[in-house]
Design a binder for these strands. Structure first.
Length: 661
RNA sequence: GCCGCUUUAGCUCAGCUGGUAGAGCACCUCAUUCGUAAUGAGGGGGUCACAGGUUCGAGUCCUGUAAGCGGCACCA
């Protein structure tokens, strides 16, 4: 007999070997019908698999969130079945559930075409209609290897051979089709439903290793209901609408061209946005006790050899040789330069922590396939800083940094989504004791700053120290990793950084590499997508468009523009001989935050009619009122906070905006 | 870098099985002076990514190259 404890706390006894389906049937016939999976002590299991032990027990229906992953996993199996029916000779490999859907990697000579996807999808729906029972079988290891070899499934046979001895080999059978799989699965192909869609074709390496054969991956999305599928497709459309590359072109922010691939041509409006973000970051760093520096763009090979970059990352560095025989490299990162500045003259423990910041332009030779819009470039600017400190300052500095990062994200309408701690890799510098302390310090400091679980990523740290990754989420819930903080035990040693302590002896400082935006370009890309180009007033490249109704108002419009501009606002005028409807439409489509309409009436009364992006109303204000109001509204969020702290009236208007515009 | 797809006017895209390139928007000119999301008329603009090949003839078929896109690998 086994004891099952149900979610309501009740406990019942069942015979050994009872299945989830039996249990469901014993509760209600309707439940048996709806049941697709069970959960035993937190583990998902097939409905028809006999229960070999008791424990916390739950019966799951298709609609339960836990079932979704299984629906996706099953969909991948159905896809594999469909592919093997349609394209005999295609080998299967693996096909897991992933976020929003599933994929399956196939080995086949001829590539699949987009037309094939429609055919496969059709066949998948037929397989669902066939209502094939999905059954779990436990196989003998060598028999399983033999079986898959005999049917030409070399990859499957390899997977089984690589499973540890003693591992239970389970094969799932649906209709005539079999696949090696851990499970669990739904009871029948019909349970999977038809709320799926094949999305794209891609190449992928066997076992994720580029030295292995390249397989053909088919991605699909699968949901519990048609409505969920529709909603997902809508979200994808929405994401596409926000694509920074599209918006960048439409709003005339920047462009890329093949003569400089992976590098941005910033246009006036885009560069205004860039400068606004940079000026904001600079103020935040200034206020947080950083000093800003600028190190050379190109330095001698010898320095990169000393720092270790030449050996480890030389292949990704842009290099050149002078006619005088010097070998130089364009900096791929800023750290060695900063250590040179630290090393100049003598540093005392009184100088620590020394927070050295640079908007550092870095160049890295990224593989062509890695480039992506302005998110992944060959030339980019890090909002980099290195904090030189004592070991006992690591925690405090980390906490301070995380608070700053959190506040910066919030100012851009973004939210810190998760913090991850990348732990020691196999190949690493430093002793285990040092790593224990370092990992522990970062973990504790991050927790203290954000009151959030810190996810641990074993083996993903840099060879020189553990790393905190900060993932943010945008307005439509996508996540991005921008911020990072990395502890470094190695570089100060390699580049001989030291400071004098109280007793006059010399010590190595610890270095914290940290960035909030990561790359300015990438961060701006995220910001563009976050706001879908409809920037808040303080960020908008053009903040106010002064549009005339008739040419009678031209002189007045110029005066309005001049006064707004004098108050620090970024202003454009539209004096064209066009109807006001036309102008409103055009500037609204261009996402101008404020349209100031002036006609004969406003000119005579010294007023302006303000229309805000996204609203149809207008407010008529005197010119002076409008200037004050807009100037104060256009102040960056940190400047407004500062003004409030100092007790200045926020109505007094522009503080600190000018440097950006 | 690897796999697949794409590349036609400034932008978005048509162009069937080969017969010498088209729309909308944008741009320019003229007229229109108008009160909150498109005034009308006219005009200019393309080595069809690039280089070869097949053909009487190539935007269209073939090969190669490049870039872009979707993934994979990479991301110090």
């Amino acid at each position: 007999m086994i004891d099952l404890i149900f979610p309501d706390g009740s406990k019942r006894q069942f015979d050994d070997g009872v299945t989830g389906r039996d249990v469901a049937a014993s509760i209600a016939k309707s439940l048996e019908k709806k049941a697709v999976l069970v959960k035993l002590d937190g583990e998902l299991r097939d409905l028809d698999r006999p229960l070999d032990k008791g424990g916390a027990f739950e019966i799951l229906t298709r609609e339960s969130p836990e079932a979704l992953e299984t629906i996706r996993h099953d969909a991948s199996h159905i896809m594999a079945e469909a592919v093997q029916e349609l394209f005999p000779g295609t080998q299967v490999t693996i096909g897991p559930a992933i976020d929003d859907g599933f994929y399956y990697d196939f080995a086949r000579e001829t590539p699949f075409s987009l037309d094939d996807l429609a055919t496969i999808e059709q066949r998948m729906k037929e397989i669902v209609d066939r209502d094939e029972k999905i059954e779990r079988e436990v196989w003998d290891r060598s028999e399983a290897i033999e079986h898959f070899k005999s049917i030409g499934e070399a990859y499957k046979a390899e997977i089984i051979s690589d499973l540890p001895e003693g591992e239970t080999i389970t094969v799932y059978r649906q209709g005539n089709w079999k696949d090696l799989c851990l499970g669990p699965h739904l009871p029948s192909t019909k349970s999977v439903g038809k709320a799926f869609k094949l999305m794209k074709l891609a190449g992928a390496y066997w076992r994720g290793d580029h030295r292995n054969a390249q397989l053909q991956r088919i991605y699909g999305t699968a949901w519990a209901s048609e409505a969920d599928l529709e909603a997902h497709l809508k979200r994808l459309e929405e994401a596409e609408r926000r694509d920074h590359r599209k918006i960048g072109r439409a709003m005339d922010l920047f462009h890329l061209q093949e003569e400089a691939k992976g590098m941005i041509f910033w246009h006036p409006k885009g560069w205004t946005l860039y400068r606004t973000v940079e000026a904001y970051m600079r103020r935040r760093l200034d206020a947080d006790g950083y000093v800003e520096v600028k190190a050379p763009q190109i330095m001698d090979r010898a320095l990169w050899e000393k720092s270790g970059h030449w050996e480890k990352f030389g292949a990704n560095m842009f290099t050149c040789e002078t006619t005088e025989g010097e070998e130089l490299a364009v900096k791929p990162m800023n750290c060695p330069g900063h250590v040179q500045i630290f090393n100049f003259g003598q540093k005392s423990y009184r100088d620590l922590p020394l927070r050295m910041a640079e908007f550092g332009a870095c160049h890295r030779f990224e593989p062509s396939g890695a480039l992506h819009g302005i998110m992944r470039l060959r030339a980019f600017t890090q909002d980099d800083a290195h904090i030189f400190c004592r070991e006992d300052q690591i925690e405090e500095e980390t906490t301070k940094f995380v608070r700053l990062l959190n506040s910066v994200y919030a100012d851009f309408g973004l939210e810190l989504h998760s913090v991850k701690l990348a732990l020691r890799p196999d190949l690493r510098a430093g002793t285990d004791e040092v790593w224990d302390v370092a990992e522990d310090k970062l973990d504790r400091a991050a927790r203290q700053a954000v009151n959030m679980e810190v996810e641990r990523l074993p083996g993903e740290g840099a060879f020189y120290g553990p790393k905190l990754e900060f993932h943010l989420s945008d307005a439509i819930g996508r996540t991005w990793q921008c911020g990072t903080l990395q502890l470094d035990f190695v570089l100060p040693e390699r580049l001989d950084a030291e400071y004098v302590v109280e007793d006059g002896s010399k010590q190595r400082p610890v270095m914290l590499h940290r960035a909030i935006c990561g790359s300015m370009e990438r961060f701006i890309g995220v910001v563009i997508e976050n706001y879908a180009g409809a920037f808040p007033l303080w960020l908008a490249p053009t903040q106010v468009v002064v549009a005339t109704i008739t040419s009678d108002a031209d002189d007045y419009a110029l005066r309005v523009a001049q006064e707004l501009s004098a108050a620090g606002l970024r202003v454009a005028t539209d004096l064209r001989n066009e109807k006001i409807n036309y102008k409103i439409r055009e500037h609204s489509l261009a996402k101008a935050p404020i349209i100031a309409v002036v006609g004969r009436r406003e000119a005579e009364e010294g007023k302006v009619a303000l229309r805000r992006f996204g609203s149809e109303g207008q407010s008529v204000l005197s010119l002076e009122e409008a200037v004050n109001k807009l100037a104060s509204e256009a102040s960056p969020p940190d400047v407004i906070r500062q003004a409030v702290l100092q007790g200045a009236s926020p109505e007094r208007g522009p503080v600190g905006v000018r440097e950006a515009g």
